[in-house]
């Protein structure tokens, strides 16, 4: 898995609340059997007209945000389906960190599996970062996972919380399956015990 440690980049403001997984990657693009190549379709229906032309008003189509690596978003980002195509599309576009007051649980988890960092902050701090993001490409934020801090373009430092295990995996780019397989003896033991206590399973 891709490591994440520290990033300085452009943040794009997306203040709309409840941005759902159908908005992030519409179902037409879920027919792929690959993980890659979805970036061009990220936010497809918000980003392009029916004939495929870019909508100039959409934030990631604006010249100053085309290379955004951070999203600052409204509440409940990523609600809806379990499709990992949503973080795959965002990662393929170049997004590495997302800031919001809240994320849907499954989307939140999926981000970590793909080297992306979702950060939960209180409303006032998201508002402050939203204002900073609105300054455009000259405003670059720094997200430092080791220090658990975001630094705005004018030097305001905002600390954030993160689950220590998820932080560890992200910093070191650890593969979950590899980690779990180290505990295979415990899984074997659980299975033998369950075969006795719940043989019908």
């Amino acid at each position: 898995m891709q490591k994440f440690s520290k990033l300085t980049g452009i943040a794009a403001p997306m203040p709309l609340v409840n941005i759902d997984t159908d908005m992030i990657i519409p179902k037409g693009f879920l027919k792929t059997i690959k993980r890659t190549g979805l970036g061009v379709h990220a936010f497809d229906e918000m980003r392009y007209t029916l004939d495929g032309t870019e909508k100039p008003d959409f934030v990631l189509n604006k010249p100053q945000y085309r290379n955004a690596e951070i999203l600052v978003t409204g509440d409940n980002f990523g609600c809806g389906s379990s499709r990992e195509h949503a973080p795959w599309a965002l990662a393929d576009f170049g997004i590495k960190a997302i800031v919001s007051t809240s994320f849907a649980d499954i989307f939140f988890n999926n981000c970590f599996k793909n080297g992306m960092l979702p950060i939960v902050l209180p409303q006032e701090q998201v508002d402050l970062l939203m204002k900073d993001a609105e300054k455009g490409s000259n405003a670059r934020m720094t997200v430092d996972l080791e220090a658990q801090e975001i630094t705005t373009s004018d030097g305001v430092v905002i600390p954030f919380e993160i689950d220590p295990f998820k932080k560890h995996c992200l910093l070191n780019g650890l593969d979950d399956i590899g980690l779990t397989l180290e505990k295979v003896a415990a899984i074997d033991a659980f299975e033998s015990q369950a075969a006795q206590s719940r043989p019908w399973v």
Partner: peptide, 12 residues
């Protein structure tokens, strides 16, 4: 669950 977790469950 997401697809990475699908793989995790298949394997473990």
């Amino acid at each position: 669950i997401g697809t990475s977790e699908v793989e995790h469950v298949l394997a473990t």
